[in-house]
C-alpha cells in the first residue's frame, strides 16, 4: 500500500484508509457506491475493528466488496446476506459482520431475510444502498423505483396499476422490535456525506455495544441507469428521491440515544 512520506508534507490530511485496499473500484462514473465504501473503511479504522470486521457482500454492483476492503469478507447468495451475517455473528460474537446490500438484493429477493434478521434483533449491521434501480443487470425496475420513473423494465415509467409501489424500507423495518437503530441518509452533497458517516458509525457502535440490529439506508445516484450526467443525477436525487424517501432517523432505541449523547458530551470537553 502506498503511503505519503511525512517528510514531503507537514500533516497528512487525507489518505487511503488502512481498511481500504489499493484496488480499483469498478463503479461507473458518478456512482455513489465508492463514497459509501470509503466511509465504511474510515469508520472501521476509527473504531479500530479491522481485525474483527467482516464484510458480507451481496449480489449486484457491490458484489466485489471483499476485494475493496482490507479485512475478512465473503460473498453471499442474492438476498441472503442477513442470514449469512447472522450465522457468523452467532458463531463468533466478537466479530463485527456487516452486510452491504443494494435495493434489489435487500428489498426484493432478500425481503424475508432482512425482515427476520431485524425481527430476531440480530446484533449485526446492514448498509443498504438505495439507487432505485437494478444497476448491475442494466437498470431494470427495483422495489424502490419511483412511480413514473423510467427503467429498462418499465418502458413508459413505473405504473402502480402494473408494477405496484416503491417500498420504504426504513419505515417498514423500524416497526420491528428487534431493530435498535434505523436511519436513512444520502450522499448527494458533502454535508449529506458527513451525516452518512455519522449514521454508519453509530450503526457499527450499536453493534459493538450489543444493542441489536442496526440498518442505514443510503440514497445513492446511479447516473448511467438513470440516463443522466453525474451532476444532474445528484439534482434528480434531491428533487425526486428525497420526497419519496425522507432522510432521518426512524428508530433510535434509548441505549443507542445514550451512545449518541455520550458523543456530544465528549465533543464538548
Amino acid at each position: 500500500m502506498t503511503k505519503f512520506s511525512i517528510s514531503e508534507l507537514d500533516t497528512v490530511l487525507y489518505h487511503r484508509p488502512e481498511s481500504l485496499e489499493d484496488y480499483p473500484f469498478h463503479f461507473c462514473p458518478g456512482c455513489g457506491h465508492g463514497i459509501v465504501f470509503r466511509l465504511i473503511a474510515e469508520i472501521v479504522d476509527e473504531l479500530n475493528i479491522k481485525e474483527r470486521a467482516v464484510c458480507v457482500a451481496c449480489v449486484g454492483c457491490s458484489v466485489n466488496s471483499y476485494h475493496y476492503f482490507n479485512f475478512d469478507g465473503l460473498e453471499s447468495a442474492h438476498g441472503r446476506a442477513p442470514a449469512v451475517a447472522t450465522a457468523i455473528k452467532r458463531c463468533h460474537p466478537h466479530l463485527v459482520p456487516f452486510t452491504y446490500q443494494g435495493d434489489g438484493d435487500l428489498a426484493a429477493i432478500g425481503t424475508a431475510e432482512i425482515v427476520h434478521a431485524c425481527a430476531r434483533g440480530e446484533n449485526i449491521t446492514t448498509i443498504f444502498v438505495n439507487n432505485a434501480v437494478y444497476g448491475m443487470t442494466g437498470g431494470q425496475m427495483a422495489p424502490t423505483t419511483l412511480v413514473g420513473m423510467y427503467s429498462t423494465s418499465t418502458p413508459g415509467g413505473r405504473k402502480p396499476s402494473l408494477s405496484g409501489y416503491p417500498i420504504r424500507v426504513c419505515e417498514m423495518l423500524s416497526t420491528l422490535d428487534g431493530t435498535a437503530y434505523v436511519a436513512r441518509v444520502s450522499v448527494h452533497n458533502p454535508a449529506a456525506v458527513r451525516k452518512t458517516k455519522q449514521a454508519i458509525k453509530l450503526a457499527f457502535r450499536t453493534q459493538l455495544a450489543n444493542l441489536g440490529m442496526s440498518l442505514v439506508e443510503v440514497l445513492s445516484p446511479c447516473p448511467v441507469n438513470w440516463r443522466l450526467e453525474p451532476v444532474k443525477a445528484l439534482e434528480w436525487l434531491v428533487k425526486h428521491m428525497l420526497p419519496q424517501y425522507p432522510l432521518g432517523e426512524f428508530k433510535v432505541i434509548e441505549a443507542v440515544a445514550a451512545l449518541k449523547k455520550g458523543d456530544r458530551l465528549c465533543t464538548k470537553k
Binding site: S76, A77, R80, V84, T86, I88, E113
Partner: peptide
Amino acid sequence: NMVYGAAA
C-alpha cells in the same frame, strides 16, 4: 445460507 455463513 446460515449454514453457509457458519461454515465460512
